[in-house]
């Protein structure tokens, strides 16, 4: 335990990351470059999120880690263990008890509060990346608010599929200024981006941090005649019966049987135990 500094990173690195976070909070949606460190896990496993979490953690914090809504999948378990080992903080699977929640690709169903921080793992922070390969050009486009191209992507969706087929990483405009990639959360979660909690986004490989401060306006991009639709499967959860949560489709045998269950495992378990969700 003493072999590591608190939460793995050295204090200078954490200060550097906190400076980036503060700048991100000051300019909502703006991607702040930071000197991302090599972490003891591969890129794509949440190195950005882990660094942001490490910079935010205090010994009094209670940490929850979600991977695609679940607390018990590989990514969530290993990151939770990592901080148990290197920071010795309390961990929980209950959304309501956590002060810091690191998440991969979901926002918890339970409404977050002002006392909580939500840390996202981001693979590709640049919403314009697949439309414009040059970083020089995309930065210029952000600086000049030149976002026509983003709508071209949505136009292509409608032209090809008859609707906006982008189902995850759905682009949003933050506080009427920056277009932001909300990380690959399902678009069902987009309305929850307007939250009481501080939301921080860390992209380790791409070396970017950005933030959505509490109560910031976050608008999903759309067309006047094709408005944004946070869709979900038209089923209740097979386990807890919830009608309002995002569902995973689970194949149960090789004869085509399937069931739909809450992707947020804590929310589902809480409902089945009769806990207040």
């Amino acid at each position: 335990m003493n072999a590591y500094n608190f939460a793995y990173l050295d204090e200078q690195t954490k200060r550097m990351i906190r400076r980036a976070i503060l700048k991100g909070v000051a300019v909502p949606g703006y991607q702040v470059p930071f000197a991302s460190r090599e972490m003891p896990m591969p890129y794509g496993w949440g190195t950005g999120g882990v660094q942001v979490t490490a910079a935010c953690l205090t010994p009094e914090d209670t940490l929850k880690v979600i991977d695609q809504g679940a607390d018990d999948t590989t990514n969530a378990v290993s990151i939770r263990k990592f901080f148990e080992k290197t920071a010795g903080v309390a961990v929980t699977e209950k959304t309501g008890e956590a002060t810091i929640i690191q998440t991969r690709h979901r926002i918890p169903e339970q409404t977050l509060t002002e006392d909580q921080i939500l840390v996202y793992q981001v693979p590709i922070p640049e919403p314009l990346r697949f439309l414009e390969p040059s970083e020089v050009e995309t930065r210029k486009m952000h600086a000049l608010e030149d976002y026509g191209l983003m709508h071209v992507k949505l136009y292509e969706d409608i032209a090809r599929h008859g609707e906006i087929a982008t189902a995850y990483a759905y682009p949003v405009k933050v506080e009427g200024r920056y277009v932001m990639d909300p990380s690959p959360i399902p678009k069902f979660d987009n309305p929850k981006l307007e939250s009481a909690a501080l939301q921080l986004f860390g992209a380790g490989r791409e070396q970017r941090i950005y933030a959505v401060p509490p109560y910031t306006k976050v608008v999903s991009l759309d067309f006047d005649d094709y408005p944004f639709d946070p869709s979900k499967p038209a089923h209740p959860c097979a386990l807890c019966g919830a009608e309002d949560s995002y569902l995973d489709e689970v194949i149960t045998d090789d004869a085509g049987s399937r069931m739909f269950v809450c992707s947020d495992t804590d929310y589902c378990a809480g409902r089945r135990e009769g806990r207040d969700a």
């Binding site: 976002y147 026509g148 071209v152 136009y155 067309f223 006047d224 005649d225």
Partner: peptide, 11 residues
């Protein structure tokens, strides 16, 4: 593209 760049948002 040029239409959308100048603010046309009606598909």
């Amino acid at each position: 593209e040029r239409l959308m760049a100048v603010g046309a948002h009606h598909y």
